[in-house]
Design a protein around this nucleic acid. Sequence first.
DNA 1: ATGTACAAGATTTTT
DNA 2: TCTTGTACAT
Length: 749
Amino acid sequence: MPETDSAPVAPVSATPPPPYLAELNDAQRRAVEAVDGPVLVLAGAGTGKTRVLTARLAHILATRRAWPSQIVAVTFTNKAALEMRERLERLIGQAAEGLWLGTFHAIAVRILRRHAEVVGLRPNFTILDTDDQLRLVKQVAAAEGVDEKRWPARAILGAIERWKDRGLAPDKVTDPGNLADGRALKIYRQYQERLQTVNAADFGDLLLHNLTIFQMRPEIAAEYQERFRYILVDEYQDTNVAQYLWLRLLAQKYKNLCCVGDDDQSIYSWRGAEIGNILRFEKDFPGAQIVRLEQNYRSTPHILAAASALIAKNAGRLGKTLWTTANEGERVLLRGVWDGEEEARWIGDEIESLQRKGERLSQVAILVRAGFQTREFEERFINMGLAYRVVGGPRFYERQEIRDALAYLRLVHQPADDFAFERVVNTPRRGIGTQTLQALHHLARSARISLGEAAARLIATDELKPAARKSLGGFLTDLARWRGLAQAVPHTELAQIVLDESGYTAMWQADKSPDAPGRLENLKELVAAMDEFENLAGFLDHVSLVMENAGQSGGDMVSLMTVHSAKGLEFDVVFLPGWEEGLFPNQRSLDEHGMKGLEEERRLAYVGLTRARQRAYVSYAANRRIHGQWQTTLPSRFIADLPQDHTEMNAEPGLHPRAAGLAPGLEEDWQPTPLLRRRPELARLLMQTRHQDVTPPPPNAGVKFAAGDRVFHRKFGLGTVRTAEGGKLSIAFDQAGDKMVMDSFVEKA
DNA sequence: ATGTACAAGATTTTT
DNA sequence: TCTTGTACAT
């Protein structure tokens, strides 16, 4: 949101009949025209949520209910905000100057910068990234004497973030739980205090501080309540409690709040999203209009039916019946393969064949459950020369050299930024090691000052060794000079000067590792990217809030991403690999959240399927290598949830043939092959061949069982062999009782 | 203060 | 398998 928000901008003129209404169906039009008062739009996948929200914006402007600067529209990603703005401006035929459009965080930060002093910050405060957060928690926890092994910093930070997601500042927390022996709350307090000392806010703070400001200064709250005549929210099912409170407060005066959401697509509960926010809407806003959108414009009937049947297995949903008038199309294709490499090969071949039939690569996506799954596809696609892009993968701003460079700029811009200080004080090497740093930390913590200030005090004494003292002094002098320069020269020039004078560029020039030239290239790119911003502050905010890949968006390429990042997107063809028990649904989600976890996983599967317009492919592998370990896997229970009428099974011969009809109970006779776990060299050999042609060796080949042997069965557990005849064993299982089992299904215990 | 060698641990999803 | 952290040597 680069625009300023000074004076209200004149109303946008539009000539009737409005084009934005022409392309809508009845329900959509109702949602658009019900502009006064609270509105909740419950909409299924592919029913045109964003289109409705945009049309609504256009409508508000065209009917002159508000100026753009009196409207706030909140989207889930910055990209969605950009798209909405473009669409809106096309609709109204002019720029929507002054419109507040962006993520919760992007909007909250604008408010916070203005009133930072209310929460003890200065307007140029730093926005922390996850790394910095974690480092701070580690420091605080260590000082508190918490055992890192028992209570990893990650877990403590998780607890802190959960509190923040729920809108709880340290003084509001009532349930300290037993995390870190009940010390988590104490750590939270110190963490927060330290953030204030170093003039920084983390992501959660952006909203939390907003709430605090509104609470402590009612006149400020009133100002924004007055300003925001219309509030629009996309993806409402994924708002957390803090966001909900923020919205409720701001909408208090005009109550023109319109939320669009789909409870079946709530996939962020791990980040604090509350489906309850949707359910509560009518209670909080009596007389709210509820509009349901159920006509799907995206997918073919087969895909829609398969997805609907899948999500119908979830209990506790509001329930929607999606329908479409589209032509039947192809069934969802289910494909079972031997292993992950085979899966990547098959998908690659399939994409090539689609491409030959005229499908554009940019209309093809591979959606995986977890980030690490993209690697297999990348390797394969590089190999076959297929153009692809990883969406949301390793990001430009997360590269080491970029983060270092940014740390220099942050430190120039915000002298108290400890995290930046720590990052660059000895990069390039200045002979400032752990000893010196420890002394700095010690003083900084005890005197409640920033590291930079502590450094300044320390060089005034003779506590440090002469070498360290001299070098640290030089560093501080440099910083002071650059800060002075910041007023005088343009920010791109400043960046260049800082990188050169600090010796950072020279450091990489002297580096003879193969990736050094690339890093220097990236640094150049960074300086070039800064040119698009008015000043250093604007650039730094952009970097903190918009952590996405610059460039490389163009071109005809296959998209590779997690299902989470595919939210809100659509493609002609979607591949959904890795539908295996443990991977999808993810085991950890199941272990930690039980039924709730399973339902969220199912919603995720639903989101994945409904991204497809024309074709959806679901695949699973019988063997997968995870952390370099071979594991045999079962087809996901979600596959069994897909109705046979709308799917087509196409498994490799000999691979758990009834997988499609197999319920997760796995009563049946299929067993994974433990052989591969014991003999990875065999697995590797198998992987190097065309697997269609290879019959896997029978499991347990050559293993003979005799009465009295202790054995293990995947389903029945441990037991003792009573009799063995041919391949059939009679086994007395410790838990499951007596069973007849084929010997290939048990292992020697 | 810096560099090396070896061991342990990790992998869910992101504004 | 790959990355990160720690202990020890330089």
